[in-house]
Amino acid sequence: MLKNKIERLAFSVLSMTLLFSSSVAFAELASIDDEDLSVISGQAGVYLSGEISINENGGPIQNAYFGDCTDNKKCGARLAFQPKENGGWFVLDDFKGGFSFQGLTLRVRDISSGFGGDGSNFNREVLEVGLPDQIKVDKLQFTYAASSTARPTDAGFQQTDFYTVEIDGNITLQGNLLVFPTGNN
């Protein structure tokens, strides 16, 4: 069960990565070795530790649909978008949960060597996102749905929930995400 959840999350992360890297940005995952690490010494850049939580104790709306997390109402966030004019709405509903980590690093890195000789050909700067080894996911969940209106309080509101995803546990994310532009401007 947990494995399935982790696979779903990994897929989501990969999807997000591809989305982010499309068109003008390109990303790759690469292990950072000791030689590369030695270049980092004394430079700016940042090592981040902490957590991000979404609607941990509910959101700011209190109405017939949204409430706090202790009653029967939905307490997560809701995203609705309309892909067709005057059509229905895709919904990501009741989005809540959190994750924490140690060791997410951010810095701009000049790659002009290494990588089995490819570095000298590459010879440019990248935004390096050093992934934390472990991410602890705390009851991250959301529901896929389709709705007749943007808001659950709009007149004529009807919604069909398709399925709910819940992720809970530790995820291993190793390596670096390298982001760089490939356009010509």
Binding site: G50, G58, A77, R78, L79, W89
Partner: peptide, 17 residues
């Protein structure tokens, strides 16, 4: 997209650099 609505959001981040 002809319209997009993000509702009832409350995000907290604790980050230390």
């Amino acid at each position: 997209i002809y319209g997009m609505s993000l509702q009832n959001v409350n995000i907290t981040s604790n980050l230390t650099a």
